[in-house]
């Protein structure tokens, strides 16, 4: 399938309904995510922004609409070759970071990071260890490689979760409220890692309540409410010249 080079994910008219049509978590969202975008999704709770993010790698199965990732419509049951679409292959290319870290408690930090590269990508344990240690070094946690998740602080856990996803060498990183479960003094260390990642050119989609991060690091801001994408623009446009009354109201409450 031919796509313009720059478009990494194309979302078209994405809908997610619960209970028939009584709850519309996503109500027709369309957006293109380009390579190098740092797309920050903001909006009140229950606006559908997490559902939107979790739909991108099909952790939530959309009711209708299409998601074209690197040229493949991953919402189809069958791939372009006519065989059953293997979502695992596409998920390898989409790293995800969760609000509650979701590190594997029975495995060490190093094992957390090397499990998928070894078992899924077929990397040798030696290479995977080397890469994991290098990544841990970049977030200042090389000395914790053999610790278990329970021995880390929240901020450390989330930094590990980020490099665990990076160890798969994804083309895009999805962040689902990565600092919402952290103690306030640990928010900074996680945002710093994300900022560094953005500066290195990683394509990122970030659902967050951190308006400072959105304004400073975001390249495009999406404002969602009631399952709809109500406004989209540069940080300057969104924060300094908001058009939609819902957005104006939201910003007056959070800023």
């Amino acid at each position: 399938m031919a796509t313009s080079d720059n478009k990494l994910i194309q979302v078209k008219d994405l809908k997610k309904y619960y209970n028939g049509e009584s709850i519309k978590a996503l109500d027709g969202v369309s957006v293109d995510i380009n390579k190098g975008d740092v797309m920050v999704v903001i909006g009140p709770s229950g606006s559908g922004k997490s559902t939107f993010l979790r739909s991108l790698n099909l952790l939530e199965e959309p009711t209708s609409g299409t998601i074209i990732f690197e040229g493949t419509d991953i919402t189809q049951k069958k791939g372009p070759d006519g065989k059953k679409l293997n979502i695992d292959l596409h998920r390898q290319k989409m790293g995800m970071v969760f609000q509650h870290f979701n590190l594997f408690p029975h495995k060490t930090i190093l094992q957390n990071m090397t499990l998928a590269p070894v078992k899924v990508k077929g990397m040798s344990q030696e290479d995977a260890d080397k890469k994991a240690l290098e990544l841990l070094g970049r977030v200042g946690l090389a000395d914790r490689a053999n610790a278990y998740p329970i021995q880390l602080s929240g901020g450390q856990k989330q930094r590990v979760a980020i490099v665990r996803a990076l160890a798969m060498e994804p083309d895009v990183m999805l962040f689902d409220e990565p600092t919402s479960a952290l103690d306030p003094e640990m928010v900074g260390e996680v945002l710093d890692v994300m900022k560094k990642l953005a500066q290195e050119g990683m394509t990122m989609v970030v659902v967050t309540h951190e308006m400072g991060f959105a304004r400073e690091v975001g390249s495009r801001i999406l404002f969602m409410a009631d399952g709809k994408l109500l406004e989209e623009g540069s940080p300057d446009a969104i924060f300094n010249h908001p058009q939609n009354p819902r957005l104006q109201d939201f910003l007056s409450k959070v800023l």
């Binding site: 952790l59 695992d88 989409m94 979701n102 499990l115 998928a116 798969m168």
Partner: peptide, 21 residues
Amino acid sequence: DIGQTEAARSLGMSHRLTMTQ
């Protein structure tokens, strides 16, 4: 916790691998 499954699947691990590992 369902988050364990989600984390494993988001890394591209299959259902079977997620279960056993």
